[in-house]
């Protein structure tokens, strides 16, 4: 189903009723599909800039969760790896993976086109949001040695939402997908909740896009949290670091800067980076809503 629209119907029954005869479930699936308010789905695209495809793998890493999202909430209208579309179409949400290579004309063109075609642009993962590992590139690589300037997409276009991390966490992507759906298609109450949920990630994006150089690293934990007298020594930054660059020493994070890949996970995870009582006090409601959305049959 994820391989473009034509093949959409085939794998779905497999996952739902693998033992049943082939003809029946297909028929069932078709009637179901007609009943579904497909018009209510949002359209999502995955735009691949200079990244390693790890973010896309994370998107698919919710296993059946991805099927649920594509069945009920979103149509994948553009994704070079998984969908049969060659040109960036109009879409509600663009998930952009990777940073922009300034020497690659096509990349620059495509990221600008993405901004024109997408209502919401999400920087998916550390590279798109903060440059991440591509911040260390100095060019000289076979077979395009002149490709040496890589910038986060926020340096070229305005970005609406950041999902930091390397790779971004599948559950975080799932939560953003569900919330984006509620924001665009939900009732007033759901929209308010989704807006409150997404606000911090939108703030990260607007801060990142505004900055001359939207870099993130363990330094943010130092400058924006500890230097500001806000650290509580909880250790969440340390647990969130994908490269184990942060250890807790005498109750405070100790950051190995040479190991840091600048993915932005530690700062985004820190409860003293942003914390909304409006959102977190409703943690049970939100977790239930997301579980409910991901399990529409209720099993």
């Amino acid at each position: 189903m994820i391989f473009g629209k034509k093949e959409k119907k085939e794998p779905a029954p497999k996952s739902q009723a693998p033992k049943a005869p082939v003809s029946e479930p297909i028929a069932k699936e078709e009637t179901k599909k007609e009943e579904r308010p497909v018009a209510n789905k949002i359209t999502v695209g995955h735009v691949h800039m200079s990244g390693c495809t790890g973010c896309l793998v994370s998107l698919a890493d919710t296993y059946e969760g991805l099927f649920t999202i594509l069945d009920n909430y979103a149509d994948l209208v553009y994704c070079l790896t998984l969908a049969d579309a060659r040109h960036i179409p109009k879409m509600d949400v663009a998930l952009v993976e990777g940073s922009v290579c300034l020497q690659d004309e096509l990349s620059v063109e495509e990221i600008k086109e993405t901004r024109e075609k997408a209502a919401v642009v999400v920087a998916l993962g550390g590279c798109a949001a903060y440059g991440n590992i591509t911040r260390f590139c100095r060019g000289g690589q076979w077979n395009q040695p002149q490709h040496e300037g890589f910038v986060p997409i926020g340096d070229v276009i305005d970005v609406d939402v950041y999902i930091p991390g390397c790779a971004p966490c599948p559950q975080q992507i799932r939560n953003v997908c569900v919330m984006a759906y509620l924001l665009l298609k939900g009732n007033a109450e759901q929209q308010a909740l989704a807006k409150a949920y997404l606000t911090p990630l939108m703030t990260l994006a607007s801060e990142g896009s505004k900055a001359v150089s939207s870099e993130a690293c363990g330094c943010d934990i130092m400058t924006k949290v500890i230097n500001q007298g806000l650290c509580i020594g909880c250790g969440t930054c340390s647990a969130s670091c994908p490269v184990y660059a942060i250890t807790m020493q005498y109750g405070k994070p100790n950051i190995e800067r040479d190991m840091c890949i600048k993915c932005g996970a530690c700062y985004a995870a820190c409860p003293r980076a942003f914390f909304s009582f409006d959102v977190v006090n409703q943690y049970e409601t939100i977790i239930d809503a997301i579980n409910g959305a991901m399990n529409p049959g209720g099993n």
Partner: peptide, 20 residues
Amino acid sequence: TPCQMQALRKAQLYPVGLRD
């Protein structure tokens, strides 16, 4: 502590870097 519970619930809602 209360702040660690805040961190925990935030991590459940925004599991940045805490896959699965």
